[in-house]
């Protein structure tokens, strides 16, 4: 599975240019790096990465399904890649935060903002858990529509500034991790079920 992950990371290099544009757009949309902005930034960049990774599997599906690679590994690698995208999104937003320091934001504010990044990561996981079953069920073309719908929802949240995206304090971390893992597992099972029914 690590080779499938490696392939995804190699291919993401082509997304760097687009991500650069994303960061520039974020710089306009998020003039000050507050905690809610970190949440949005991490989830938006992360979800962009996972959607990019779906687009090139138009080619990959025929290839991998003709090779001795079980379908659970193909699906599993996409879920594993979520964590790599989380790291990449965090790194990019942190870089954006450091740049904002040059324009007057205090480093302390940036660091405090980052203490809320986990909400963005949770949001990214939830997006992935909705997106991958759509992709594995309908294929990349239809998943592009899911992509658009998810973006509209994200932009709506961004515009209305819903604070509830910052999850309530006091939720047991163990419960939270268990809940996330359960959602991931369920999403994986649904994706695998759909993918096994797909024809290429």
């Amino acid at each position: 599975m690590k080779h499938l992950l490696l392939k995804d990371l190699l291919l993401q290099k082509r997304s760097l240019g687009v991500l650069g544009i994303y960061v520039v757009v974020l710089a306009f949309v998020l003039p000050k790096l507050g905690r809610i902005h970190v949440v949005y930034g991490v989830s938006m960049i992360g979800s962009a990465l996972l959607m990019f990774s779906a687009t090139w599997e138009d080619l990959g599906n025929m290839l991998w399904n003709s090779m001795p690679v079980p379908k659970w590994k193909l699906v599993g690698a996409k879920y594993l890649a979520i964590f790599a995208y989380m790291g990449a999104a965090m790194a990019l937003i942190f870089l954006f935060g450091l740049i904002s320091v040059l324009f007057g934001t205090s480093l302390a504010d940036v660091i405090v903002s980052f203490s809320h990044a986990w909400s963005g990561l949770l949001m990214l996981i939830l997006i992935a858990c909705m997106y991958w079953p759509a992709y594995f069920s309908l294929g990349p073309a239809a998943a592009r529509y899911a992509n658009i719908i998810l973006y509209i929802i994200l932009l709506y949240w961004l515009r209305s500034g819903h604070q509830y995206l910052i999850l309530p304090v006091g939720v047991s971390p163990i419960l939270l991790v268990a809940g996330v893992l359960l959602v991931l597992a369920l999403s994986f099972i649904v994706s695998l079920h759909f993918y096994r029914r797909r024809e290429f």
């Binding site: 080779h3 190699l10 080619l59 290839l63 003709s66």
Partner: peptide
Amino acid sequence: HFYEELTITQMTKVLAPFY
């Protein structure tokens, strides 16, 4: 059906371990 953005060295390094 190979990824056009990869070189054949990269592509083969990804494929070969499955055989």
